[in-house]
């Protein structure tokens, strides 16, 4: 139980997938302009992460490993992620139109979001059990969510200031992300995972 809680908080804070591994950067920068959209995106990523992790984990341990087809994991994971994003897109469009509008074109982008594929590959590498994997994926999703919402908050403040024009919109965002990563780096001592 202690291990599960450790993995959960480590994936949010010390091993934050956006700010430690710098994965999922395209939506992290593109959709962090306002807090509402950022929060929606974070929610979508969390949802997709948990579901794809569970499905990928099941396929990996119940189909690929027994058949000795581990080398297919890369391909299979991508196909599963693509399929699940499609499903999510259809359901969100039907039942949460406001969220869908705020996603815009970025929801399909989750399909090629490296954070999600990265998560599936990490969980295999780290040899997690099923429960550990669930906590890990949930924590990673929430961590990404936290990071993008924090970034959106920073960028709202940024609108009031006048950064160098040459840095543009994306440039200053990447610099901000770097500062945030340094901030998250400070967590690294508190958890032994």
């Amino acid at each position: 139980m202690k291990m599960l809680i450790l993995i959960f908080f480590a994936s949010i804070l010390t091993n934050n997938i956006a700010l430690t591994y710098f994965l999922g950067m395209c939506p992290f920068i593109a959709i962090s302009k306002n807090t509402k959209a950022a929060s929606g995106m974070g929610m979508a990523v969390t949802y997709v992460m948990v579901i794809t992790a569970i499905v990928n984990y099941s396929i990996y341990s119940f189909v690929l490993v027994p058949m000795g087809l581990e080398y297919l994991s890369f391909l299979i994971f991508i196909i599963v992620i693509a399929g699940i994003v499609q499903v999510l897109e259809m359901l969100v469009e039907r039942f949460f139109p406001v969220l869908y509008v705020s996603f815009g074109i970025f929801l399909p982008l989750i399909t090629v979001n490296c954070a999600i594929l990265g998560l599936s590959l990490f969980m295999i590498l780290r040899d997690y059990s099923f429960l550990e994997m669930v906590f890990y994926s949930l924590g990673s999703g929430l961590g990404w969510w936290l990071a993008i919402v924090a970034m959106a908050g920073l960028r709202r403040t940024l609108m009031l200031s006048e950064p160098l024009e040459s840095l543009g919109d994306a440039g200053i965002t990447v610099i901000l992300a770097g500062f945030m990563a340094l901030g998250f780096f400070g967590f690294s001592g508190i958890l032994p995972v």
Binding site: L69, L72, I79, V80, A82, G83
Partner: peptide
């Protein structure tokens, strides 16, 4: 591997 890939795609 072919069966697994195709089966997965059909399922999705």
């Amino acid at each position: 591997s072919l069966m697994v890939m195709n089966g997965l795609i059909v399922l999705i």
